[in-house]
Simulated assay, not measured.
Amino acid sequence: MMYAQFASVYDELMLDIPYPAYVDLVDIALHGLSGKKILDVACGTGILSVLLAERGADVTGIDLSEEMLAVAVSRANERFPSLKFSQQAMQRLDVSGRYDAAVIPIDSLNYLENELEVTQTFISIHDVLLPGGLLLFDVHSTFKTDELFMESPFTYVSDNISYIWETEEGEEPHSVQSELAFFVREEDGRYSRFDEVHYQRTFPIMKYVELLEQTGFTVERIFADWSDEAPELESERIFFQVRK
């Protein structure tokens, strides 16, 4: 997956994501954010990192994409130059110190291709958390990968960006391959095109619970779709709040 051009349109594509609600979830779970050390895993362009910093958290963001991190650094430098960002994989964290919490937001965990990589990620995060430390993450439900994604093609049109998004079932259970064609308006009014291929895979809820417990986490609660309600058959986004 090439991120150089995707990073330039990412923020607009994420406009419907209620990032402040994610901040509230972490704030409530930690009984306040001021002074807390938080690891933002797969931080992308730093939207959540900056919002957490606004609430007084000491944030470190990591992401695999150099281009995404460049946008994150630019965003943070305006107000929070002390924010730290590092290019690395979530399965093999290399960070200093211990953290009060880690977040893996907006289905980023679903970019891992197999159970082993998910387990490695849980282990690497468990290792850098303080005792009692929080891990909060969300994933696609199996209903979303198996049913909703199969309703493609999807389209998006704005003043500056348009895309056509086609999906097909992946080779593994509950996986999906997405092919996106982006059309971006240039300053002279012409449109340039670039293409992206994204592969995502999720697992049933109880498989995540099994892997978390094997890693040493205690599951505090599981909820769905930005609400405090338990997941249902047609829930789309599943949240896990767990402790070391």
Results as ranks from 00 to 15, higher is better:
166 E>C: 12
221 R>P: 00
152 S>M: 08
55 R>A: 11
230 A>H: 04
67 E>I: 05
148 L>N: 02
106 I>M: 09
114 N>L: 04
170 G>F: 06
200 Q>S: 12
43 C>T: 14
171 E>C: 05
181 A>I: 06
82 S>H: 11
41 V>I: 15
33 L>H: 03
37 K>F: 08
107 D>G: 01
141 S>P: 09
153 P>S: 14
42 A>G: 14
136 L>K: 00
79 R>L: 14
148 L>H: 03
163 Y>T: 09
152 S>C: 14
35 G>E: 13
97 G>A: 11
231 P>A: 10
111 Y>S: 13
100 D>L: 04
1 M>V: 10
214 Q>A: 15
166 E>K: 07
181 A>V: 07
33 L>D: 04
36 K>C: 07
184 V>M: 02
180 L>P: 00
103 V>N: 02
26 V>I: 14
210 E>W: 01
146 D>N: 14
15 L>M: 13
3 Y>H: 08
25 L>C: 03
217 F>A: 09
103 V>D: 10
32 G>M: 11
170 G>I: 08
58 D>N: 12
4 A>S: 12
156 Y>C: 04
185 R>L: 11
159 D>I: 00
142 T>G: 11
198 H>D: 13
70 A>D: 13
185 R>P: 05
4 A>Y: 03
184 V>I: 13
86 S>Y: 08
118 V>I: 15
215 T>S: 15
96 S>Y: 01
4 A>P: 00
